[in-house]
Amino acid sequence: MFNVILFILALLALSLSYVQSPGKTQKALKIAWTSFIRILPMMLGIIGLIGLVLTLLAPATIQAVFNNAQWWSTALAAVLGSLTIMPAFIAFPLAASFLREGAGVMPIAAFVTTLTMVGIVTAPMEISFFGRRLTLWRNILSFFAAIIIAYIMGRVLA
């Protein structure tokens, strides 16, 4: 259902764009295609990894790592998210599958939030644009914001 709505939305936007400017639409499709191709190798790898992880890790093991209401697993998940560089549409299904396998809301929310907002791998690049101090503080503040967000979500959704 979700996919059908998304397809219709994309087609609608695409035709609207084409009516306005075929050239721009072509450029948009080119951007879409090159982004897709660029992400494809990693996507295939992650899809394979999801299969392996879900097969080899018993729900009990996952629950031990991403355990509910455990401060250290939330901290661990937040650190894991800060270190991981992964597009959301690949990481989210993985994290959601953990959640279904019995992981806690708190560590999963921490993981998802630091994954998007904190980037240790990309920090050198960020420093080259904004300097060391701004990069450091944006990432530190985002990290602690993620912990607080995760804590509230764990409490509300538990």
Partner: peptide, 30 residues
Amino acid sequence: SSLKTSRDYLWEMLTFIPPIFILMGLLDVW
């Protein structure tokens, strides 16, 4: 069973990634 799980996820992703990338491209251009 690992390959089966991967196949399910591959199908799942291929059905919703194309429209998302098209929307991304359109937003980027407009």
